[in-house]
Design a protein around this nucleic acid. Structure first.
Lengths: 330, 330
DNA sequence: GATCTGCATGAAACCGGTTACATCAAGGGC
DNA sequence: GCCCTTGATGTAACCGGTTTCATGCAGATC
């Protein structure tokens, strides 16, 4: 591999000049520049990022910390980030925090050791204080996580409103007994969604019934278990609001196994709108999270911050995608 | 951040000694070592990877080139690679080749500029010659792609046999008119699967009928279109072998829309066994690709190669996962 | 024509490690 | 007791860039 030194020799200039041409930091005379450019082309020069980073302090990499690789929602965000980073000169290093703040701290430490220029944290539950310290050190953007005491950039959507809208949709179609399959206990997004559910109930003067709420963990299995539990308890419901699409899939299957039709007997609303949801039988009505866009937008914010620019705030909303798993009560 | 110099001063030794302690390259006297270790702990020393890489020639990163981020199968492999890499000291840089050899070449070039120590190529269609040149330069493992003229390590599964088994399964249950929704034209895996399909037919003395084969592209939409097309043409079939699970989802939905029950009227076999498949209605019978294992195994192979070791060949097979989308012909 | 100014360029230090080589003290062999 | 070996450690060069500062040259000013 050709080094900057080789280029310099070939173009009869000094290393410094070559560096200037590459980085456009200082004006270089036209003919000199041409000679350097030609030499770089001839030798197929590819700058050594390691050296560059060591000298210049920038590694041109950004760290992405995702949670539980394999979860559709977080994965899609990560993909959005990666796609948003392509052709920016920055390369992504993707690591998994596994929804544990200790693991997250660890992986972040190795990312720092790699001199990443910026950090994108998808979800996670790192304490605000740690985050703030991190952000004082290098640009950090938080995705899919709301946090008070956080002054840095943050890309998130309003889960409470989404939960409200999902529930209102069912209510408007005449449903009054709406079961909820909750996400992981204490998970802020899950909590917000249930809060929205309650608001919609209050608004419609439907008393809140705790029996209709079953716990879950965002898995399809928890959707099955939730429905089985409700049915075994003899609890009546005509609508189901699932924590996410995976749980909705499980719920839909359990209903099927118990001879309940969707949507004729029970309506189901999911959350996320993952790729498969449009092709369920019946296609799933769900709250679409703009996961890809969230990822891309956070990449844009980070790049802007790294360049000292600011990027216009972009309003991302969770929207109801009305398909065929919901019907009017008859 | 503390540097090796700071450690050296604090432990009253030279930089070299600190380096030796860190890398265990040369014996260091017990008390000296202890002093250094203590100093590192005190100062929370985290070696600068950039400097390390520049000096030592190793970057402790590996490049992962995936195709079309967002495709369940390739994504799962990538996840496997990432998980296989965790705690090895190597960090993954993930890029998307987008199923275009020009894009792949480009992203690989930037990975080389980043001094990645090894490369994992998932799928793709880079010409064998390029690959060989690449492999001469740095350890490279090929995943989910079979290639003659390739002497390097390669993790793949036998798609022909899988296609054969899927078809045989249907035949054994009495099906004789089995439609195929093909994957992308010319995609080697897709071609192999259809070859296996033909072999099973031949073995059972069922004449091959070209009308039963419809084109597709691994998308759910193509599953819908395929079934619609067959139905419109009035072509009769009792079984469907889909290129992958996404296509199977689409096919299943199209059958539903046309009043055909699965599996009572038509049996469906998918390919991949992605997470959602077990929760379809009915749960999808499919050929399980050990995607995660493939990723992990290829990571293991690469790490071993980087350490100059060899890792025992591991036989990975595609297996039939029998669920409820297939029934015996009545 | 001498002096000043400004622009293009070169020399060298520096980033934080690794490593070949030099040095030095202690122990062993005669 | 002297010399050689051996093992531990220090010194300094080096990896491939960036950046500060010095330098030299041309044109402008008087």
């Amino acid at each position: 591999m050709a080094t900057i030194q080789d280029i310099a020799k070939r173009a009869n200039v000094s290393k410094a000049t070559v560096s200037r041409v590459i980085n456009n930091t200082t004006p270089v005379a036209g003919r000199t520049r041409d000679a350097v450019v030609a030499a770089m082309k001839d030798l197929k020069f590819q700058p050594n990022m390691m050296a560059r980073s060591l000298a210049g302090g920038r590694s041109m990499t950004v760290g992405i910390v995702t949670q539980k690789i394999g979860s559709p929602f977080y994965d899609t965000i990560a993909q959005g980030v990666i796609s948003g980073l392509s052709n920016t000169g920055y390369s992504p290093i993707l690591v998994d925090g596994q929804w544990e703040s200790s693991t997250s701290s660890e992986v972040i430490a190795t990312l720092l050791g790699r001199n990443v220029d910026g950090l994108i944290l998808i979800g996670g539950d790192l304490p605000a204080a740690n985050l703030q310290k991190l952000h004082d050190r290098l640009p950090t953007v938080l995705v899919a996580r709301e946090l008070k005491d956080w002054s840095g950039p943050c890309v998130h959507v309003d889960n409470e409103t989404a939960g409200y809208r999902a529930t209102r949709h069912l209510i408007q179609l005449g449903h009054r007994s709406i079961a909820v399959i909750r996400g992981i206990e204490g998970h802020p997004n899950a909590v917000d969604r249930v809060d929205g559910y309650r608001r919609a109930l209050d608004e419609a003067n439907i008393p809140f019934n705790d029996d209709l709420i079953v716990s879950g963990d965002f898995s399809a299995q928890s959707g099955i278990l939730g429905i089985e539990f409700l049915l075994n308890q003899g609890i009546r419901f005509t609508g189901v609001f699932a924590a996410n699409d995976m749980a909705a899939f499980g719920a839909r299957l359990a209903l099927h196994r118990n001879g309940l039709r969707v949507p004729e007997d029970v309506s189901v609303v999911g959350f996320d709108d993952q790729a498969e949801s449009a092709f369920m039988t019946p296609p799933l009505t769900t709250m679409r999270q703009p996961a890809t866009e969230m990822g891309q937008h956070s990449a844009a914010i980070l790049i802007a911050a790294l360049d000292g620019r600011k990027v216009p705030e972009q309003r991302l909303e969770i929207q109801l995608v009305s398909r065929e798993s919901v019907a009017r009560m008859t």
